[in-house]
Amino acid sequence: MEKIIKAEHIVFRYPADAEENQQPAKNPPILKDISLEIEKGSFTAVLGHNGSGKSTFAKHINAILLPESGKMFVEGLDTANENLLFDIRQKAGMVFQNPDNQIVATVVEEDVAFAPENLGVPPAEIRKRVDDALKAVNMYEYRNHAPTQLSGGQKQRVAIAGVIAMQPDCIILDEPTAMLDPQGRQEVMQTIRKLNQEQGITIVLITHYMEEAALADRIVVIDDGVILLDDTPKKVFSQVEKMKEIGLDVPQVTELAYELRKAGYAVPAEIITEEECLQALEKIL
């Protein structure tokens, strides 16, 4: 399989505050030797507690941050090469937590057109890309609305459309559902899965919601600047105690199955969805 993202021994630290400190002591590194390869067309969830370094890592993928040592490649392009910056950001688009901070225009379709306009795409092509992007996130009928009148989930989908209009190969989403209600969360997650499955866009999703991570092909757990676990959701969530120990959680159904197994009942270890839990319970009840 082709690797779209390749991180090689990345080390990164934020600069120390020079004002408070005449001789700035170096901050401790937030990323300590991270190496990771992500396959084209895959859906990877990244988990980690606050301050674990997961967002810092994500910001390396589209060259918002550059490694202190080590290398980051996006489709073979070195993010440290300034001349490649536009190409890299076109290939790897980023969506952030707060939709209100990402919307720049006063009409939905103009907002989606912002990136392709900046890339110098011809007008006719922009029109087509904007329409396609809005249809892909199911927001086409809102194309003439003002973003302020939309719900959080709708705004976040517009932000995703804005990234899709650049025709990226990879989208990195940093807690895109943190500010949304349950329905908004569901809308955004459905959109992400659809883009991954139907258009083959590589997805890197950073989240604190374990149920969302359970939908991915692969989960990478970052703890204290290193990769602690890297496996399928079933394998990662079956380590209930380890996940809790590092300040994370597992889906509720996984926890129930774990508790029943501990009590001596024959429940399989790898339960991560409601259906699997139901089946397992019906077997023993």
């Binding site: 509720q252 159904v253 129930l256 508790e259 029943l260 409601e274 839990c277 139901l278 319970l281 019906e282």
Partner: peptide
């Protein structure tokens, strides 16, 4: 999530209480 699983089981005829909506209470009831 856990409340949804417990309610489906109840609908299928399992004799579970109605008010199970935390992992702890679900575990005790099961």
């Amino acid at each position: 999530q856990i409340a949804s699983v417990m309610q489906t089981l109840r609908k299928k005829g399992y004799n579970l209480p109605e008010d199970l909506y935390t992992v702890e209470s679900a575990k005790a009831a099961v």
